[in-house]
Simulated scan of single mutants.
Amino acid sequence: MRSFYIFIKCELGRTYKVASAIVDTVSETRQVHSVSGEFDLLAQFAVDDDADIGRFVNKSVQTIDGVKDTQTLICFNAFTPDRGQGLD
């Protein structure tokens, strides 16, 4: 599985509706957080290794009513307490 995050800017007054729509309709969603700053939401997704992330963002996230803009961050490695030591 490939993990990635998407910062999402919403139309004014639509943040909670967008968050609900993502959680309710996008099965690849892991978490959605409301955040401060330039963007309104930070959502984590996981897709199959061979999935086209750009196409996923375009079809599954950017088409949600109330989404104004996105910025995608693709993850390389996950460092966790059970996997974080001895990797250098």
Rank of each mutant, 00 (worst) to 15 (best):
S3C: 10
S20Q: 11
Y16D: 09
F45L: 05
D69R: 12
R30W: 01
L42T: 08
F56W: 14
F39D: 03
A21P: 03
F56D: 10
V23F: 04
E28S: 13
L73V: 08
Q85N: 07
F76D: 14
S20H: 10
D69Q: 13
I74V: 14
A19I: 00
R14L: 05
I64L: 12
E38R: 10
I8F: 01
R30Y: 01
L12C: 05
D82E: 09
S34Y: 00
V57K: 07
K59H: 12
S3N: 14
Q31L: 03
D40Q: 02
E11Q: 11
I22V: 13
G37H: 04
V32D: 00
F79D: 10
I6R: 07
D52E: 06
K9C: 00
Q31T: 02
I22G: 00
I22A: 03
F4N: 07
Y16W: 10
V18Q: 07
A43R: 01
D40I: 05
L73K: 06
N58A: 15
L87R: 15
V47Q: 15
G37F: 02
T70G: 08
F45I: 00
R14V: 01
Y16T: 11
R30F: 00
D69T: 05
K59A: 12
A46H: 10
V26A: 08
T72E: 14
G86A: 13
D49T: 08
A78H: 11
E38N: 06
M1P: 13
